[in-house]
Design a protein around this nucleic acid. Structure first.
Lengths: 336, 336
DNA sequence: CTGAAAGCGCTTACAG
DNA sequence: CTGAAAGCGCTTACAG
């Protein structure tokens, strides 16, 4: 009735309490009436034996794993650990386990990561990677696993989305630069086909249009959402002539790379050229000059994702897809 | 034989292939001889049906969950996401799932987190938090869960350890400051009872002793391993008179907080006071002045932890505890 | 090389 | 309010 010298199982508890395993299970779940006396007795035995239900057995029966997977493009980007922390904030108290997978490493293609995670039969997935294709999303949806995405195109068949209003965020940065009198405002973006890139580009173009400024393809550069990508792009843009007097960067990492280049080139920021970021990672306030950027509420995004997932898992919401847009905030510092 | 409209189980595969479930299982595990012809047939059916073994059923039978938990004190400290990425580097290819839990939040006490993780019956735990008590460690060890710690006192009963040589790291920083002619070198530490604090303090004291310098309790301050802790400690230390001319900080976050304070106080770094960090997080090279620090090989630490765990889980190593010390490297930048 | 059968530890109709 | 029994989907001696 008890694993040899190991952990007690539900039968051991039942035996010690003089009841059936059914009754112990009812006490555990609280879903069926149990007399106060029996309940107390069972709980005492559970405490005494240090009994914990075996999660595999439970999962096998209920077809629920009580775990959620977060898939991120790059753990090295501090935005994503914050999202993870936000998920934990709400997940932990519900007993869910959070697994985190970095899909960025060479040889770790997203479809493979998705397969890996689905094979583990997690109950829900938070897909935080802009590299996801319709195919990846389709595979998750067809498996029946609940899905929340961090951004991406909103479509009923693709499930819930939580995102910040990136287009407006970039719009606000560009308007701010226009207000300050910058004339040749360039845009240094991340992966060109990634959805956040496209949406941030929209914000850039909208702000220029509103100010009756021309949109010059020559002043738009796409690369990757990394420091290296920023450096490379900044070198390209700053060699245009006439030189841009402001670089609006797709995220803070890109801006950091751009700052590296201005330093190498001996350009003063914001004197010769203004530089702005996006996300407001901690480094944004640490570097010199401190970076003008847009606060992307990573932790709150994580919390919201968890809530949406739990809603659906608990069956409290089972309707059409929802898109939740969280407010951004322009943060003006010294680089503009 | 098949879940209604759902995923195929091993019986469905067996039926479609015209063999027994035992044989399918043997093909899956590769641990028993199966004829080439049968094997090919079974594999074809698996492919066709898109069969994936149910991990809960497998775990229930084998008493193995194929998952590893990482417990960190603060996901916001970029050191830990890097450790997580290193773990993934080696874990993913072995089919293990990595869960990450932040034990730092208010109301998320470590004993509770440990209980939560043990209740999930993970196969191994990487305990990356300096807040662990002997009691926490004991509980993990007694549960039979494999454990690797990131630092801490090395004791046979407490299992494997992977760490950088922190004492030597701080020693090297202090020696470097002495070489540069700094006279009143203060130490701004993290949580006083945490093991990394103690060991880093040792390095500080050893370097002073070697240089025949006095160790002045007045110049040693303990707080927390955070930016806020650094600010508070720097305010205290910089108000001593005579004022210290160098602040050796227990980690980079503390150093960042100290830099905040020097800026407020109008002190020049390294002119009035040198400041050094520990870890070499990305921000260390971004801030101004760029931080002199010690490279703590986080990602490699993560990889090494994973290897030790897998060794033990595979039964390839089942002997006394091992302590693996990875080399650090002094990185001199502009703050000293 | 192949298969019948037991059993891992739960939950959940179902019966009383 | 309580319990006997089936069954979730695997793996693993054991027998042949």
């Amino acid at each position: 009735m008890k694993e040899a010298g190991g952990r007690p199982n539900i039968a051991a508890v039942a035996a010690a309490a003089g009841v059936s395993v059914t009754t112990v299970s009812h006490v555990l779940s609280g879903r069926k009436p149990v007399s106060a006396r029996t309940k107390a007795k069972v709980e005492a035995v559970i405490e005494e034996l240090g009994y914990r239900p075996n999660p595999s057995a439970r999962s096998l029966r209920t077809a629920r794993s009580e775990s959620i997977a977060l898939i991120v493009p790059d753990l090295t980007n501090p935005f994503y650990p914050l999202v993870a922390a936000g998920l934990q904030d709400v997940l932990m108290s519900s007993g869910y386990l959070l697994s985190v997978t970095d899909a960025a490493l060479p040889s770790r293609a997203l479809p493979e990561v998705v397969r890996h995670v689905l094979a583990r039969r997690v109950d829900g997935i938070v897909l935080a990677t802009y590299g996801a294709t319709d195919n990846d999303i389709d595979k998750i949806r067809k498996s029946g696993t609940k899905l929340v995405r961090l951004g991406g195109r909103f479509r009923a068949e693709f499930g819930d989305i939580v995102r910040a209003d990136d287009a407006s965020g970039v719009h606000d940065v560009v308007s701010h630069l226009i207000d300050r009198g910058y004339q040749r405002i360039a845009f240094l973006n991340g992966e060109p086909h990634a959805h956040p890139s496209q949406i941030r580009l929209e914000g850039y173009e909208r702000a220029l249009r509103e100010a009756d400024r021309p949109i010059l393809p020559d002043l738009i550069h796409s690369g990757t959402f990394t420091r290296a990508g920023g450096a490379e792009g900044a070198r390209a843009l700053l060699s245009r002539s006439p030189r841009p007097d402001a670089l609006v960067c797709g995220n803070d990492l890109i801006a950091v790379g751009a700052l590296d280049v201005t330093r190498q080139l001996g350009l003063s920021v914001p004197g010769d050229v203004a530089i702005t970021g996006y996300d407001d990672i901690e480094a944004a306030s640490l570097i010199t000059p401190a970076l003008t950027t847009v606060l992307n509420p990573a932790r709150e995004i994580g919390r919201t994702c968890a809530r949406l997932l739990l809603d659906r898992l608990a069956g409290e919401y089972d309707d059409t897809a929802r898109e939740i847009v969280l407010a951004h905030r322009l943060i003006v510092r010294d680089s503009s």
